[in-house]
Design a protein around this nucleic acid. Structure first.
Length: 904
RNA sequence: GGGCGAUUGGCGCAGCGGUAGCGCAGGUGCUUUACACGCACAAGGUCAGCGGUUCAAAUCCGUUAUCGCCCACCA
């Protein structure tokens, strides 16, 4: 029999195992031929990490969950594929490459568009596989043989089809709007790409002098958080119902804009909240979305005062050339000097920041491309409403609905170079323009040369196609048809809008109303151990690669999975992974024990995987003792529980059940029972060997999705008889096959046996009795089946002798209480341990008295309950019966204790 | 302004209508021939506060407090 080293060393095994899996083709959809074609296929598409990305804890968690689902489905025999790839990540990648160029003293403009895009491809070739190799280190069983990229040629074709179709349908349009402009990235951003943060700021109250005083009033005070934008003001708005300003509005009063001299109107608009600030708003249509709307309503001029880097342009007169920050200071200084600054208030408000570089967003009026969303949203709302797509936990559906029902048009053009270029062509000679799925070089109307739109598409415009564009759409849809919709999408809550919602919309539009996935798992956010978000700026991030190095990939995966409950956050402390590293070692050592003790088993008839015979039959359990029946019963219950937990995507519950079964039942008790049983020889020994192997084999199968490496390493050495070459493709234990092992009688007997063993151990510990001192033990059974219980317990004497070091053991319904003995009442058993001459009974008396008080308290509580007529009348029958039985049991236990106290 | 999550022994978490569980840490004792990354035993909680529903509430409802997240055009 092979031997395993004393401690499990993850780093020595992980990469070898991974390579062997990959070489065998297990990661591709049934490439190795072990799947059952009759079963429904199982597909997951990975949320594509940015090519610029490094694995972080969010990825580690998310991909652990996806791999658990993928591996389990594969073991269930379903033709399974986990589609993997990366996202070109427009802004993120462009920023990286620009940084690299900056290090060489260059800008993208020095290179020009074509060379810069080529530099991005170079960057991708050089660094883009980092995160893929990190996924491999985690043990992720993705289909790496067909890695996808959102800039692949087939993907570009998908993009063009979507854009052109939507353009023709009028869903993609171009328009002048206030958009979110990042002056550092010099591009537009979608509303969802802006992150708002509350900042402590000021509300400056400015005096705008009237051109002509009205009724003695010489100026109007406006309140603003952005005084520098006053350079672009083209109006002052007040609420129509605001009596303070009614006269000014009625008179058609104008103000002369300080520092600028422009005459601008005062007008009334419902948007203005009379109770805020001074009740009068300066209106800057080119730099504020609300002002823009008001400007349209009141026909105001839009004066853009900033360049694309947010430097004041020539419209800012004397302030031209200053940054917006400098301009704020100098404008305020000038206003104050000229007496236009009325007063200043403290004011907190929320300021938008670029989600890629955290620069403050500048609302900016410009021509951009948009997608009209309302029409796309409607079927997507219905799909979640009627359960074609289900979120887990369900509450996230409300977040989805809330966004969908208040959806706004999506700004999809980006002033970047890295990305899918907008396929719209313009002829400057005759004014023709159109979207086209094939490149256009000459104008179809006049034959002149045409130019393509300069902008590229938002990265999310391509990501929204991920579930189908990665599976052949729009060209070769055979694979797609067979495997769509996908089963599960697992992701973080922060991209429910950016990504999840848009995938549902585009999939339903282009694939005949089909949803892209059936279940959406929104996993918790991984926080640091104090509950703070992990971030670069805080420096509190944890590198999963270090965890893999220090604890092993299996321990990391298990430690993450066990923390997944329905909650929205998980605090993560790397030191806690020690527990799961210890668990891995425990599994390893249990396997060592099994291998050391099964060499002479009856393996001749079983399959060849363990190298011990070759008839292709798997090792079957053999129930010779109640301990055997007990562990098989417990295993069957575990298999059933896991089925429920996985169906509900309750990874934490599944992990806890596995941990408890393996450690507290298999190791703590069954392996201990097996020691005595092995020593007996004969059929009992054969049974123990078979069951040790069978249960370990099943446990490894059940643990494999969470801990793929250690389970495979052990399984390869175990004489389980399964002819499959890898645990990855071995069969998942099905509840239907295990239900036959459920055996309540054996469970009751072994629970009783364990209670006796624990009672003896407790007595030894309490009185300092040597483990070598053999003790006499008597158990009195009670209840209807007292005789049967006693007989079953008596049959456990060999186990008991080994585990509790008993000299003699008797169990009977009417067993006499030995003199000078300790009594423990557990599991309905009165357990007497003879202590004559061994202990000072004063201590035992004290203990018994304490025990008595406790039991009396419980009985009092129960009695009160049973005296309550409401309880008797309204509680369920079985609950009342149980209460009665418990009360009877407690009463007799108390009587026993009293008797015992009297005898001491 | 809306919505959501969390609040259970020193710490990290389960449980989510019928007498409080787990793991760490801490205590005591163990070279029990798989494992000290271990074994055994013991100790530790009025389940954030208040009110309600119920025969029965950590568990359901309302409310308050604290911490955190998201959404919203707070000039």
């Amino acid at each position: 029999m092979p031997e395993l080293s004393k401690n499990y060393e993850p780093s020595t095994l992980e990469s070898t195992l991974f390579e062997s899996w990959q070489a065998a083709g297990y990661f591709q959809r049934d490439a190795a031929g072990f799947a059952d074609a009759q079963l429904p296929p199982y597909t997951i598409v990975i949320p594509p990490p940015n090519v610029t990305g490094m694995l972080h804890m969010g990825h580690a968690l998310n991909n652990t969950l996806q791999d658990i689902l993928t591996r389990r489905a594969r073991m269930q025999g379903r033709p399974t594929r986990w589609v993997v790839g990366t996202d070109h990540a427009g802004i993120a990648t462009q920023n990286k490459v620009e940084q690299k160029l900056a290090g060489e003293g260059q800008t993208r403009f020095d290179l020009g568009r074509e060379a810069f895009v080529e530099a991005c491809w170079d960057w991708r070739r050089e660094y883009g596989s980092t995160i893929i190799s990190q996924l491999k280190a985690m043990g992720c069983s993705c289909d790496f043989s067909a890695e996808q990229f959102t800039m692949d040629p087939n993907y570009a074709e998908a993009i063009r089809k979507v854009f052109v179709d939507w353009y023709r349908a009028g869903l993609v349009y171009r328009g002048l709007r206030i958009i979110n402009w990042c002056p550092r990235c010099t591009t537009a951003l979608a509303d969802d790409e802006v992150e708002h943060a509350d900042v402590a700021a000021h509300l400056w109250h400015l005096r705008y002098p009237l051109v002509e005083p009205v009724g003695g009033v010489e100026y109007i005070v406006v309140a603003t958080t952005r005084p520098e934008t006053m350079l672009g003001d083209t109006g002052v708005a007040v609420n129509p119902a605001d009596e303070r300003y009614a006269a000014l509005v009625a008179a058609g009063a104008k103000v002369r804009l300080p520092l600028v001299g422009r005459e601008i109107p005062i007008f009334a608009d419902d948007y203005v909240d009379a109770s805020f600030g001074s009740g009068a708003v300066k209106v800057t249509p080119a730099h504020d979305p609300n002002d823009f709307e008001m400007g349209l309503r009141h026909d105001l001029e839009q004066i853009n005062i900033f360049t694309e880097e947010a430097v004041v342009n020539t419209n800012g007169g004397a302030f031209a050339g200053q940054t917006r920050e400098q301009a704020r200071e100098s404008v305020l200084a000038a206003l104050e000097e000229q007496g236009y600054l009325d007063h200043i208030e403290e004011h907190n408000h929320s300021v938008g920041h670029c989600y890629r570089c955290d620069t403050v967003i500048e609302p900016w009026a410009s021509e951009q491309w948009f997608v009209a969303m309302r029409q796309l949203a409607e079927p997507a709302i219905a799909a979640v409403r009627d359960g074609r797509v289900v979120f887990h936990p369900r509450r996230w559906e409300n977040v989805y609905f809330n966004w969908m029902e208040n959806i706004r048009d999506w700004c999809i053009s980006r002033q970047l170079w890295w990305g899918h270029r907008i396929p719209v062509y313009y002829c400057d000679s005759c004014g023709w323009s159109d979207a086209a799925s094939e490149d256009v070089t000459v104008c179809p109307q006049c034959g002149a040369a045409v130019r393509q739109d300069e902008d590229v598409l938002d990265t999310w415009f391509s990501s929204q196609l991920w579930p189908f564009a990665t599976q052949g759409w729009p060209q070769d849809c055979g694979d797609l048809k067979a495997n769509y919709p996908t089963q599960v999408l697992s992701t973080a809550r922060d991209i429910i809008f950016l990504w999840v919602a848009r995938m549902v919309m585009s999939s339903m539009y282009f694939l005949d109303g089909q949803v892209p996935f059936e279940d959406v798992i929104i996993h918790p956010t991984v926080l640091d151990k104090h509950g703070n978000i992990m971030s670069k700026s805080r420096g509190n991030g944890i590198d999963p690669m270090e965890l893999i190095r220090d604890f092993g990939a299996d321990a990391m995966r298990f430690g993450l999975a066990i923390q997944v409950t329905g909650t929205q956050d998980m605090k993560f402390d790397r030191e806690k992974l020690k527990v799961y590293r210890n668990f891995a070692t425990k599994i390893w050592n249990a396997a060592r024990y099994v291998l050391m003790n099964v060499e002479d088993g009856d393996w001749q008839r079983y399959g060849s995987s363990g190298g011990l015979g070759d008839t292709g039959e798997k090792v079957a359990p053999l129930a010779a003792t109640d301990a055997d029946r007990w562990i098989l019963s417990r295993l069957a219950r575990l298999v059933a529980a896991l089925e429920e937990d996985f169906s509900a995507y309750d990874f934490g519950a599944a992990a806890r059940a596995l941990y408890a079964f393996f450690w507290n039942e298999y190791c703590d008790w069954y392996i201990e029972f097996s020691k005595g049983q092995l020593a007996l020889g004969g059929q009992a020994r054969i049974a123990a060997q078979r069951n040790l192997v069978f249960v370990l084999d099943c446990a490894l199968r059940l643990l494999h999705p969470m801990m793929p490496y250690i389970t495979e390493a052990i399984w390869q050495e175990l004489p389980h008889g399964d002819c499959r070459p890898s645990l990855m493709v071995a069969a998942w234990p099905a509840p239907a096959d295990f239900a036959q092992y459920i055996d309540p009688a054996a469970e009751q007997t072994v629970d009783g046996l364990c209670a006796v063993v624990s009672a003896v151990r407790a007595v030894r510990a309490r009185y300092g009795i040597s483990p070598k001192q053999e003790l006499d033990v008597v158990v009195r059974t009670s209840g209807e089946d007292a005789a049967a219980t006693a007989a079953a317990l008596l049959a456990q004497e060999p186990q008991l002798a080994g585990l509790a070091r008993t000299a003699s053991f008797n169990a009977a319904p009417d067993a006499a209480k030995p003199e000078q003995s300790s009594v423990t009442i557990e599991q309905g058993l009165e357990i007497y341990i003879v202590l004559e001459g061994l202990v000072d009974f004063a201590a035992e008396r004290t203990r018994l008295q304490k025990e008595r008080e406790k039991k009396q308290g419980e009985l009092d509580k129960l009695s009160r309950k049973l005296a309550n007529e409401g309880f008797l009348a309204k509680a369920a029958v079985d609950v009342v019966e149980k209460a009665r039985a418990d009360a009877d049991a407690l009463a007799s236990e108390l009587a026993q204790i009293d008797e015992q106290l009297a005898s001491l």
